[in-house]
């Protein structure tokens, strides 16, 4: 598997590590209640198909990336810097 890092170009998957669902970028506000934080920390969907997830280019440029990957085919559909991803600008919905 190869991932096209927006900074480094196409690279071997050994340079990257997987973190989890990209919705981790959209965390609740400090005032949000227990329910919202519980949901943010523990509840994840497990979709069959395109999924947005966080990857770390640790052996490359050390960017956090949001990778859209099809979980049934492992096809990489898109890659963007986490700082540019819409999740980074959202608050988690309670």
């Amino acid at each position: 598997m190869r991932i096209v890092c927006p900074l480094c170009g196409e690279r071997d998957s050994r340079e990257f590590s997987y973190k989890g669902a990209a919705l981790a970028l959209a965390y609740p506000s400090e005032e949000a209640g227990f329910e919202a934080w519980d949901d943010y920390l523990h509840n994840r969907d497990n979709p069959a198909g395109p999924t947005r997830e966080l990857w770390y280019h640790g052996s490359g440029c050390t960017s956090w990336l949001v990778v859209t990957r099809n979980t049934t085919t492992h096809e990489i559909l898109s890659v963007e810097l986490a700082e540019d991803a819409p999740e980074s600008r959202q608050e988690a919905s309670a």
């Binding site: 480094c8 050994r14 052996s59 490359g60 050390t62």
Partner: peptide, 24 residues
């Protein structure tokens, strides 16, 4: 390293962060 080392991918003056064996 897993880098593409060919001239067209890695010309003189180019640089990359990558692995050398198991090391960044």
């Amino acid at each position: 390293t897993p880098l593409d080392m060919r001239d067209r991918a890695f010309p003189v003056g180019a640089t990359a962060r990558s692995e050398v064996f198991h090391m960044q």
